[in-house]
C-alpha cells in the first residue's frame, strides 16, 4: 500500500459518502443517473468475486464490502425508496448503458490477463468502470444546473482514479516486474473522460459561479 493508493481509496470512499449524504439529506436523487449507479454496482460485483476466496488484508476486505453494499444501497434507494425514487430524472437519464455493458464484456473476452471466468470478469469490471460515468455526465449536461453535492460527487469520483495512476507509476518504479497494463490504460481513459468535467468544475470554482456543463 502506498500513499497514492490510500489517497485514491479515501477519495473514492468520500465520493460515495457525498452521494449518500446528498440522497439522505435532501431525500432526493435529482441530477443523479441511476444507470451510472447500476453500472457501478455491476463493476464492484464483477470485480470483488474473490472477496471470499482470496484474502488480501482486513482493509481490502472491509473496503470491498463497503463498496458493494453502498452501491447496491444507492441503486435500491433510487429504485424503491418511496420518497427518493420520485425525484429520479427518468426522462433525462436515457443513456443506452446496455451498449456499455455489452461492449466492455466483449472487450474483456478478447483482452484479459488469462482466459478464466474470474480474470474475464475482472477485466470486464475494469473496462466498465472506465465508461460507467458516461450516463451521469450526459445527465448533468442535460439537466443544466448541477447542485453542489452532485458536482462534488463526480469530482471525487474522477479524482480517485487519477490518484491510482500515480500509484501505478510509483509501483512501476519501485516494484520489479510490476505491470497492470489493463488497469493502467483503462484508468488513463477513465480519467480522460472526466477531463472536460474537471475543466468546467475548475472554472466554476475559480469564478465562484454555479457549475454549468455546456449542452
Amino acid at each position: 500500500m502506498n500513499i497514492f493508493r490510500l489517497a485514491g481509496d479515501m477519495t473514492h470512499l468520500l465520493s460515495i459518502i457525498v452521494l449518500l449524504l446528498k440522497i439522505y439529506a435532501t431525500k432526493s436523487c435529482s441530477g443523479i443517473s441511476l444507470k451510472t449507479q447500476e453500472l457501478y454496482a455491476l463493476v464492484f460485483l464483477a470485480r470483488y468475486l474473490d472477496l471470499f476466496t482470496d484474502f488480501i488484508s482486513v482493509y481490502n476486505t472491509i473496503m470491498k464490502v463497503v463498496f458493494i453494499a453502498s452501491s447496491l444501497a444507492i441503486v435500491w434507494c433510487m429504485r424503491l425508496h418511496p420518497l427518493v425514487k420520485r425525484s429520479y430524472d427518468k426522462e433525462l437519464d436515457t443513456f443506452r448503458h446496455y451498449f456499455l455493458i455489452g461492449g466492455t464484456f466483449v472487450l474483456a473476452l478478447v483482452l484479459n490477463e488469462k482466459f478464466t471466468l474470474q480474470e474475464i470478469l475482472w477485466a470486464f469490471s475494469i473496462y466498465l468502470e472506465a465508461v460507467a460515468i458516461l450516463p451521469q455526465l450526459v445527465l448533468l449536461q442535460r439537466s443544466g444546473n448541477v447542485d453542489n453535492l452532485t458536482g462534488q460527487y463526480v469530482f471525487f469520483l474522477g479524482a480517485y482514479r487519477a490518484f491510482y495512476i500515480l500509484n501505478w507509476i510509483y509501483r512501476y518504479l519501485t516494484e520489479p516486474r510490476f505491470t497492470r497494463w489493463i488497469a493502467c490504460v483503462s484508468g488513463i481513459v477513465q480519467t480522460g473522460i472526466y477531463a472536460d468535467f474537471f475543466y468546467y468544475y475548475f472554472i466554476s470554482w475559480k469564478n465562484n459561479s454555479k457549475l454549468k456543463l455546456p449542452a
Partner: peptide, 10 residues
C-alpha cells in the same frame, strides 16, 4: 501454467 498476480488493489 502462468499464474496472474494477486489483485491487491480495489
Amino acid at each position: 501454467c502462468y499464474q496472474t498476480p494477486p489483485k491487491d488493489e480495489l
